[in-house]
Amino acid sequence: MALEITRCVTDDDYEAWRRVRIAVIPYERTQSLTELREGDKPERLMLLARADGEVVGHGLAQPSDSSGGGSVIPRVLEGHRRRGVGTALLERLVAHVGELGLPTVRAGADDDGSLAFAHRFGFEEVNREVEQTYRLTGPVEPTPAPEGIEVVTAQERPGLWEASYERFGLEALADFAVDTPLDVSPERWARDWLVDPMFLALHDGEVVGCAGVGLDPDQPTRAENGLTAVRRDWRRRGLAVHLKLVTLAWAAEHGIEEVYTWTQDGNAAMRTLNERLGYDTTMIGIQLARPLAGLLGNP
Protein backbone atom coordinates (compact mmCIF):
# COMPACT_ATOMS: atom_id res chain seq x y z
CA MET A 1 0.00 0.00 0.00
CA ALA A 2 1.37 3.38 -1.03
CA LEU A 3 0.21 5.83 1.68
CA GLU A 4 0.31 9.57 1.05
CA ILE A 5 -0.67 12.22 3.61
CA THR A 6 -1.16 15.77 2.39
CA ARG A 7 -2.58 19.05 3.66
CA CYS A 8 -5.99 20.20 2.52
CA VAL A 9 -5.47 23.03 0.04
CA THR A 10 -8.14 23.03 -2.65
CA ASP A 11 -11.93 23.02 -2.37
CA ASP A 12 -11.85 19.42 -3.60
CA ASP A 13 -9.53 18.55 -0.70
CA TYR A 14 -11.87 20.14 1.81
CA GLU A 15 -14.87 18.39 0.28
CA ALA A 16 -13.04 15.05 0.47
CA TRP A 17 -12.25 15.83 4.13
CA ARG A 18 -15.95 16.48 4.74
CA ARG A 19 -16.95 13.19 3.13
CA VAL A 20 -14.66 11.21 5.43
CA ARG A 21 -16.17 12.86 8.50
CA ILE A 22 -19.72 12.28 7.30
CA ALA A 23 -18.93 8.61 6.65
CA VAL A 24 -17.27 8.02 10.02
CA ILE A 25 -19.62 10.06 12.25
CA PRO A 26 -22.88 10.47 10.31
CA TYR A 27 -24.74 11.28 13.53
CA GLU A 28 -22.97 14.64 13.98
CA ARG A 29 -23.20 17.83 11.97
CA THR A 30 -20.25 18.43 9.62
CA GLN A 31 -19.27 21.98 8.77
CA SER A 32 -19.97 23.17 5.24
CA LEU A 33 -17.17 23.92 2.79
CA THR A 34 -17.69 27.63 3.42
CA GLU A 35 -17.41 27.19 7.18
CA LEU A 36 -14.25 25.12 6.85
CA ARG A 37 -12.71 27.75 4.60
CA GLU A 38 -13.64 30.55 7.01
CA GLY A 39 -11.96 28.68 9.87
CA ASP A 40 -8.73 28.06 7.95
CA LYS A 41 -6.00 29.50 10.21
CA PRO A 42 -2.24 28.84 10.41
CA GLU A 43 -2.68 27.05 13.75
CA ARG A 44 -5.13 24.55 12.22
CA LEU A 45 -3.85 21.55 10.27
CA MET A 46 -6.22 19.56 8.06
CA LEU A 47 -4.91 16.42 6.37
CA LEU A 48 -6.04 13.84 3.83
CA ALA A 49 -4.72 10.28 3.77
CA ARG A 50 -4.67 8.47 0.42
CA ALA A 51 -3.81 4.83 -0.15
CA ASP A 52 -2.90 4.06 -3.73
CA GLY A 53 -4.54 7.35 -4.69
CA GLU A 54 -7.84 6.68 -2.87
CA VAL A 55 -8.92 8.86 0.08
CA VAL A 56 -9.05 6.56 3.12
CA GLY A 57 -8.88 8.96 6.05
CA HIS A 58 -8.36 12.48 7.29
CA GLY A 59 -6.90 14.37 10.23
CA LEU A 60 -7.36 17.59 12.15
CA ALA A 61 -5.08 19.28 14.68
CA GLN A 62 -5.59 22.69 16.27
CA PRO A 63 -5.52 24.40 19.66
CA SER A 64 -8.33 23.01 21.78
CA ASP A 65 -10.75 25.13 23.76
CA SER A 66 -9.08 23.71 26.90
CA SER A 67 -6.17 25.75 28.20
CA GLY A 68 -2.77 24.43 27.11
CA GLY A 69 -4.19 21.70 24.92
CA GLY A 70 -4.04 20.76 21.28
CA SER A 71 -6.82 18.64 19.75
CA VAL A 72 -5.93 15.76 17.42
CA ILE A 73 -8.54 13.92 15.36
CA PRO A 74 -7.38 11.10 13.08
CA ARG A 75 -10.19 9.27 11.28
CA VAL A 76 -9.96 6.30 8.94
CA LEU A 77 -12.74 4.90 6.77
CA GLU A 78 -14.04 1.49 7.73
CA GLY A 79 -12.39 -1.13 5.60
CA HIS A 80 -9.03 0.68 5.68
CA ARG A 81 -8.37 0.43 9.41
CA ARG A 82 -5.61 -1.55 11.17
CA ARG A 83 -3.20 -0.86 8.33
CA GLY A 84 -1.22 1.95 9.93
CA VAL A 85 -3.19 4.83 8.43
CA GLY A 86 -4.46 6.12 11.78
CA THR A 87 -1.01 5.95 13.34
CA ALA A 88 0.56 7.81 10.41
CA LEU A 89 -2.09 10.53 10.67
CA LEU A 90 -1.67 10.77 14.44
CA GLU A 91 2.08 11.21 14.06
CA ARG A 92 1.64 14.21 11.78
CA LEU A 93 -1.07 15.72 13.98
CA VAL A 94 0.95 15.33 17.18
CA ALA A 95 3.96 16.93 15.51
CA HIS A 96 1.79 19.94 14.68
CA VAL A 97 0.65 20.25 18.30
CA GLY A 98 4.33 20.23 19.29
CA GLU A 99 5.08 23.00 16.80
CA LEU A 100 2.34 25.07 18.42
CA GLY A 101 4.11 24.70 21.77
CA LEU A 102 1.15 23.08 23.50
CA PRO A 103 2.04 20.65 26.32
CA THR A 104 -1.12 18.51 26.30
CA VAL A 105 -2.70 16.48 23.52
CA ARG A 106 -6.46 15.98 23.65
CA ALA A 107 -8.73 13.63 21.69
CA GLY A 108 -12.20 12.11 21.78
CA ALA A 109 -13.79 8.69 21.33
CA ASP A 110 -17.37 7.46 21.19
CA ASP A 111 -16.86 3.85 20.12
CA ASP A 112 -14.79 0.92 21.38
CA GLY A 113 -12.40 0.93 18.42
CA SER A 114 -11.50 4.61 18.79
CA LEU A 115 -11.12 4.21 22.53
CA ALA A 116 -8.77 1.24 22.14
CA PHE A 117 -6.70 3.18 19.60
CA ALA A 118 -6.37 6.13 21.99
CA HIS A 119 -5.45 3.91 24.94
CA ARG A 120 -2.71 2.29 22.86
CA PHE A 121 -0.99 5.67 22.71
CA GLY A 122 -1.40 6.44 26.39
CA PHE A 123 -4.47 8.67 26.30
CA GLU A 124 -6.60 8.58 29.45
CA GLU A 125 -10.18 9.61 30.08
CA VAL A 126 -10.61 13.13 31.52
CA ASN A 127 -14.27 13.99 30.79
CA ARG A 128 -17.48 12.46 29.50
CA GLU A 129 -20.16 14.09 27.41
CA VAL A 130 -23.75 12.93 27.02
CA GLU A 131 -25.65 13.28 23.77
CA GLN A 132 -29.37 13.91 24.26
CA THR A 133 -31.87 13.99 21.40
CA TYR A 134 -35.28 15.62 21.11
CA ARG A 135 -37.62 14.15 18.49
CA LEU A 136 -40.09 16.66 17.11
CA THR A 137 -43.57 15.34 16.37
CA GLY A 138 -45.50 18.63 16.21
CA PRO A 139 -45.46 22.30 17.18
CA VAL A 140 -43.67 23.39 20.36
CA GLU A 141 -45.09 26.11 22.60
CA PRO A 142 -42.45 28.11 24.54
CA THR A 143 -43.07 29.20 28.10
CA PRO A 144 -43.48 32.96 28.66
CA ALA A 145 -40.24 34.92 28.83
CA PRO A 146 -39.28 36.10 32.33
CA GLU A 147 -40.27 39.70 33.06
CA GLY A 148 -37.86 42.22 31.60
CA ILE A 149 -36.45 39.83 28.97
CA GLU A 150 -36.44 40.49 25.23
CA VAL A 151 -35.41 37.66 22.90
CA VAL A 152 -33.75 38.48 19.58
CA THR A 153 -31.38 36.63 17.28
CA ALA A 154 -27.71 37.47 16.95
CA GLN A 155 -28.28 37.60 13.20
CA GLU A 156 -30.83 40.40 13.70
CA ARG A 157 -28.40 42.42 15.82
CA PRO A 158 -24.94 42.25 14.21
CA GLY A 159 -22.15 42.76 16.71
CA LEU A 160 -24.21 41.85 19.77
CA TRP A 161 -22.76 38.34 20.07
CA GLU A 162 -19.21 39.61 19.77
CA ALA A 163 -19.87 42.30 22.38
CA SER A 164 -21.23 39.68 24.82
CA TYR A 165 -17.84 37.99 25.24
CA GLU A 166 -16.55 39.88 28.29
CA ARG A 167 -19.68 40.06 30.44
CA PHE A 168 -21.52 36.93 29.32
CA GLY A 169 -19.23 34.65 27.32
CA LEU A 170 -16.39 34.34 29.79
CA GLU A 171 -18.79 33.43 32.58
CA ALA A 172 -20.58 30.84 30.43
CA LEU A 173 -17.26 29.26 29.43
CA ALA A 174 -16.03 29.21 33.03
CA ASP A 175 -19.07 27.17 34.08
CA PHE A 176 -18.30 24.18 31.82
CA ALA A 177 -17.92 20.99 33.90
CA VAL A 178 -14.54 19.98 32.45
CA ASP A 179 -11.16 18.90 33.82
CA THR A 180 -9.29 21.93 32.47
CA PRO A 181 -10.68 25.47 32.21
CA LEU A 182 -11.66 26.57 28.73
CA ASP A 183 -9.50 29.19 27.07
CA VAL A 184 -11.49 30.68 24.20
CA SER A 185 -10.32 33.90 22.59
CA PRO A 186 -12.78 36.62 21.51
CA GLU A 187 -12.07 35.63 17.91
CA ARG A 188 -12.96 31.97 18.52
CA TRP A 189 -16.04 33.01 20.51
CA ALA A 190 -17.22 35.04 17.53
CA ARG A 191 -16.30 32.42 14.92
CA ASP A 192 -16.80 28.99 16.51
CA TRP A 193 -19.49 29.44 19.17
CA LEU A 194 -22.11 31.28 17.13
CA VAL A 195 -24.77 29.26 15.27
CA ASP A 196 -27.54 30.45 13.00
CA PRO A 197 -30.02 31.11 14.44
CA MET A 198 -28.66 32.03 17.89
CA PHE A 199 -31.36 33.36 20.20
CA LEU A 200 -30.17 35.95 22.71
CA ALA A 201 -32.02 36.94 25.88
CA LEU A 202 -31.55 40.64 26.57
CA HIS A 203 -32.13 42.61 29.75
CA ASP A 204 -31.65 46.37 29.38
CA GLY A 205 -29.91 45.65 26.09
CA GLU A 206 -27.33 43.29 27.63
CA VAL A 207 -27.05 39.56 26.82
CA VAL A 208 -28.01 37.42 29.82
CA GLY A 209 -28.77 34.13 28.04
CA CYS A 210 -28.48 32.29 24.75
CA ALA A 211 -29.57 29.16 22.91
CA GLY A 212 -29.26 28.30 19.25
CA VAL A 213 -29.80 25.79 16.46
CA GLY A 214 -26.98 24.61 14.19
CA LEU A 215 -28.47 23.47 10.90
CA ASP A 216 -26.96 20.52 9.08
CA PRO A 217 -26.46 21.09 5.32
CA ASP A 218 -26.12 17.34 4.78
CA GLN A 219 -29.11 16.27 6.90
CA PRO A 220 -31.78 18.98 6.55
CA THR A 221 -34.15 17.36 9.06
CA ARG A 222 -31.57 17.07 11.85
CA ALA A 223 -29.92 19.90 13.80
CA GLU A 224 -27.68 20.47 16.81
CA ASN A 225 -28.38 22.74 19.75
CA GLY A 226 -25.85 25.53 19.97
CA LEU A 227 -24.60 26.76 23.34
CA THR A 228 -27.39 27.09 25.90
CA ALA A 229 -26.31 29.32 28.78
CA VAL A 230 -27.76 31.78 31.27
CA ARG A 231 -25.83 34.36 33.25
CA ARG A 232 -25.56 33.38 36.90
CA ASP A 233 -27.64 36.28 38.21
CA TRP A 234 -30.51 35.25 35.90
CA ARG A 235 -30.66 31.55 36.74
CA ARG A 236 -33.59 29.79 38.41
CA ARG A 237 -36.08 32.16 36.77
CA GLY A 238 -37.16 29.87 33.92
CA LEU A 239 -34.97 31.58 31.32
CA ALA A 240 -33.06 28.45 30.23
CA VAL A 241 -36.33 26.53 29.72
CA HIS A 242 -37.80 29.44 27.76
CA LEU A 243 -34.76 29.73 25.47
CA LYS A 244 -34.54 25.98 24.90
CA LEU A 245 -38.21 25.84 23.94
CA VAL A 246 -37.76 28.83 21.63
CA THR A 247 -35.10 26.86 19.73
CA LEU A 248 -37.30 23.76 19.56
CA ALA A 249 -40.28 25.81 18.36
CA TRP A 250 -38.11 27.33 15.63
CA ALA A 251 -36.87 23.86 14.65
CA ALA A 252 -40.43 22.52 14.44
CA GLU A 253 -41.49 25.44 12.25
CA HIS A 254 -38.58 24.80 9.87
CA GLY A 255 -39.09 21.08 9.27
CA ILE A 256 -36.49 19.76 11.70
CA GLU A 257 -37.33 16.28 13.01
CA GLU A 258 -34.49 15.78 15.52
CA VAL A 259 -32.44 18.18 17.62
CA TYR A 260 -29.48 16.81 19.54
CA THR A 261 -27.19 18.36 22.12
CA TRP A 262 -23.95 17.43 23.86
CA THR A 263 -23.69 18.19 27.57
CA GLN A 264 -20.88 17.50 30.02
CA ASP A 265 -21.62 14.52 32.25
CA GLY A 266 -20.89 16.74 35.26
CA ASN A 267 -23.49 19.33 34.25
CA ALA A 268 -26.39 17.62 35.99
CA ALA A 269 -28.58 20.73 35.89
CA MET A 270 -28.59 20.99 32.09
CA ARG A 271 -28.98 17.25 31.58
CA THR A 272 -31.95 17.22 33.96
CA LEU A 273 -33.50 20.22 32.20
CA ASN A 274 -33.18 18.44 28.86
CA GLU A 275 -34.78 15.31 30.29
CA ARG A 276 -37.70 17.35 31.64
CA LEU A 277 -38.27 18.79 28.19
CA GLY A 278 -38.31 15.33 26.62
CA TYR A 279 -34.77 14.75 25.40
CA ASP A 280 -33.58 11.12 25.41
CA THR A 281 -29.99 10.08 26.12
CA THR A 282 -28.63 8.64 22.87
CA MET A 283 -24.83 8.45 23.15
CA ILE A 284 -21.82 8.88 25.43
CA GLY A 285 -18.62 10.59 24.27
CA ILE A 286 -15.31 10.18 26.08
CA GLN A 287 -12.76 12.98 26.16
CA LEU A 288 -9.14 11.90 26.55
CA ALA A 289 -5.80 13.59 27.13
CA ARG A 290 -2.12 12.89 27.72
CA PRO A 291 1.12 14.90 27.86
CA LEU A 292 2.78 15.62 24.55
CA ALA A 293 6.14 14.53 25.96
CA GLY A 294 6.89 10.93 25.07
CA LEU A 295 4.12 10.61 22.51
CA LEU A 296 5.40 9.26 19.19
CA GLY A 297 8.94 10.40 19.85
CA ASN A 298 8.22 13.91 21.11
CA PRO A 299 10.73 15.05 23.74
Rank of each mutant, 00 (worst) to 15 (best):
S32W: 00
Y14S: 05
A109G: 15
I284A: 14
L102P: 04
E129I: 02
P299A: 12
V151Q: 13
T281V: 15
A223I: 09
E28L: 09
V151T: 13
L33D: 00
Y14K: 07
L36S: 11
G226Q: 09
A223V: 13
D204E: 06
R271E: 02
L292S: 05
P217F: 00
G98I: 03
P181Y: 08
T282N: 07
T247S: 12
R290Y: 08
V94D: 02
G84I: 01
L102W: 03
E124L: 07
D40V: 06
R135E: 05
H119W: 05
T261E: 07
A240W: 07
L296E: 11
T263L: 11
S185K: 03
D112V: 13
A190N: 08
G212R: 00
R92S: 09
D11H: 14
L288F: 07
D183S: 01
G98E: 09
Y260V: 06
E141W: 05
F176G: 01
E258V: 10
D265K: 10
E91N: 14
Y27T: 13
I256N: 01
V105N: 04
I25F: 13
A249V: 12
E131Q: 09
V24E: 01
S71E: 03
F121C: 02
E224A: 15
G108T: 07
D216P: 05
L239H: 08
S67H: 14
R37N: 07
I149P: 06
D112T: 14
E257W: 02
D11P: 12
R18M: 12
Y279H: 12
L115K: 08
C210N: 13
D179T: 08
V94R: 00
A201H: 02
G209D: 13
E78V: 10
G69S: 05
L273D: 11
R222P: 05
H119M: 09
A145W: 00
D218A: 10
G84D: 00
Q219D: 15
A118R: 01
G79N: 13
E206T: 09
T143K: 14
E141C: 07
S66P: 00
M1H: 11
R232E: 13
D265L: 15
N225V: 12
Q31N: 15
H242S: 10
M270L: 09
L93W: 03
P146A: 14
L136A: 04
L93Y: 03
G138N: 03
T153P: 09
A16F: 08
I22K: 12
G84L: 01
A177H: 15
L89I: 05
D179F: 06
Y27M: 13
L136R: 01
N127S: 13
P74S: 04
Q132A: 11
R75T: 01
P299I: 09
Y165E: 02
E166Y: 06
E141L: 10
R120E: 14
H96C: 10
L200G: 00
H58K: 06
K41C: 10
A116P: 11
A51Q: 13
R19V: 05
G101Q: 15
E43R: 09
L288R: 10
